[in-house]
């Protein structure tokens, strides 16, 4: 067995186990963390397939950004573990039916057309082959319209999400940074010129009375 094969089996094993844990573990935070592990091991498997750009982008986008926000939300939930356990048997029949269907469909596809001869090992590329350059050239020449339209749809989705969730609350207190920056000394500070007060300036009896009271 070569080093690459061992690496592949190790990463795939971690991927399968962690993907299983995502759906079976009770605690949503742990489930999200197992999803992170699943993404990460999937990315490792992709690297062994020489798809380094996709692998790194998977980590960058899903692990580095999407899952952080997911965790952010899930962690703030008030988790009641007893409640989470409650519905398990009720959903078991429908869940298992869906699972069997899914496995059956994948098996049909795999058994029918998937075999080693058709999908032989990809030819290994030369040392100076740049995966990201090849992908970039494809996206910005052959698929440029599809790519730009996808980008536009995402932009619309972002704006829609902001428009849906943003609401002006009149009672919220907030600072106006431009006003804060524009402030100069005279707006905030008043310097009072006065003579120093020493006991010599004030009548002697008042000082003594002050001390007594």
């Amino acid at each position: 067995m070569t080093f690459l094969q061992i690496a592949f089996y190790v990463f795939s094993a971690i991927l399968v186990v962690s993907a299983g844990m995502v759906v079976t573990i009770r605690n949503p935070v742990k489930s999200a963390l197992f999803l992170v592990l699943a993404f990460f091991s999937a990315s490792c498997v992709w690297i062994t397939l020489q798809a380094e750009f996709l692998a790194i982008v998977l980590v960058l986008v899903y692990v580095g950004a999407v899952m952080v926000l997911f965790l952010f939300v899930v962690m703030m939930l008030d988790i009641d573990l007893a409640k989470l356990r409650a519905g398990f048997t009720r959903y078991l029949p429908i869940g298992s039916v869906i699972a069997i269907l899914l496995v059956g469909e994948i098996a049909l596809v795999m058994l029918g057309s998937f075999n080693g001869a058709e999908y032989a090992n990809p030819a290994s590329h030369a040392a100076d082959y740049s995966n990201s350059k090849a992908l970039g050239l494809q996206i910005y020449t052959d698929y440029v319209y599809a790519f730009e339209i996808a980008a536009l749809i995402l932009l619309v989705a972002i704006i829609a999400a902001i428009a849906l969730t943003m609401r002006r609350r009149p009672n919220t207190k907030y600072n106006n940074p431009t006003e804060q920056v524009k402030v100069n000394r005279d707006d905030r500070l008043r310097i009072v010129k006065m003579k120093p007060e020493t006991p010599a300036d004030t009548p002697a009896d008042t000082v003594i009375r002050g001390k007594e009271s």
Partner: peptide, 20 residues
């Protein structure tokens, strides 16, 4: 590796998990 800049960016973005 060819995309080492992206690799570094991806890994530094993972550091946040320790804190969370």
């Amino acid at each position: 590796i060819d995309a080492s800049l992206l690799y570094v960016l991806a890994l530094t973005s993972m550091g946040v998990y320790g804190v969370i």
